[in-house]
Nucleic acid binder design. Sequence first.
DNA 1: TCGTTTTATCGTATATTTGCGATATACGAT
DNA 2: ATCGTATATCGCAAATATACGATAAAACGA
Lengths: 116, 116
Amino acid sequence: MPRTISTAFAPSDVELAAWAKALGHPARVAILRVLAERGTCICGEIVDDLPLAQATVSQHLKALKQAGFVQGHIDGPRSCYCLNPATLAKAQRALAVLFAGLGPDCCSSSPDSTCS
Amino acid sequence: MPRTISTAFAPSDVELAAWAKALGHPARVAILRVLAERGTCICGEIVDDLPLAQATVSQHLKALKQAGFVQGHIDGPRSCYCLNPATLAKAQRALAVLFAGLGPDCCSSSPDSTCS
DNA sequence: TCGTTTTATCGTATATTTGCGATATACGAT
DNA sequence: ATCGTATATCGCAAATATACGATAAAACGA
C-alpha cells in the first residue's frame, strides 16, 4: 500500500511514529506494565496476566522488542524479559517534545477562535 | 480478528492505546505539526505540505479527528481544521503517567541486573 | 535418553490500515 | 445557472495487524 515506500517523511517522525505504534495496542501497554510491576526481569508469567493466547503474547513481545522497548530473551525455555529504559526514555522525550511543539505557544493567537 | 472483542483490557489502556495509535503514522504526526505551525486554523494547505494524495490526507485527518486530536471541518469548501488542545493534553498526561509507571522507581532493584 | 516445560515460529483466517483514483458534495465567484 | 475550487467519501488493491492452534526448538529433571 505505501506505493510511496517511506520517502518524504522526516526520519525523526518515522521513529516517533514507530514508538507510538508500538504503544498503540492495549495488550502491549499491558505487557509493559506487567514487566514493570513484576520486577526487573520476568520469565514467563506474562501470559497468565493477559487474556490472550501464548502465541499472541509472544507476537506482541516481538513487536515491543522491535520497537526497542523490551530486551532479553535468552533463547530456550524460561526466557527472560525486561524493559529497556534507554529506549523508553528516548520515546518519552520524543513524545514530550512533540506535544510541546503542538502546545499553545506555537499556535499564533487564540486557541481556537477561528474554529467552530 | 479480535476473536475476543475488546473485553479484558483496562479502559484507560484502551484509550491510551488509541491515542498512541493515532500518532503511530508519520503522516499523522506531520499533519499535527503542520496544524500547529500554520497557526490556529488552516484550511487546505495541508495537502501541499505532504507527499500524499488529497484523499489520503483526508483519511488521516479523519483518524486524527476520531482520536480527538483535531477538530473543525465546517462542511463545504474551505474546511477549517485546528488542533484540540484538551485531548492533546489528556493524551500527553496519560503517556507521561505510563512512562512514569515504567520508570526506575517501580522496578524493584537494579535496572537489568538479571538480564543478559 | 525421555518426557516436561517454556517459548518462538509457522500457517491460517480475519480485520484493519494505507494509499489512491474517481466521484460526489458544497460553496463562492462569475 | 454554471464553473471552478476544495473536501469528503466510495471503491478498490495491497500490505499489515491481530489472534490462535499446532508445531518445533531448547533446556532441564528424572
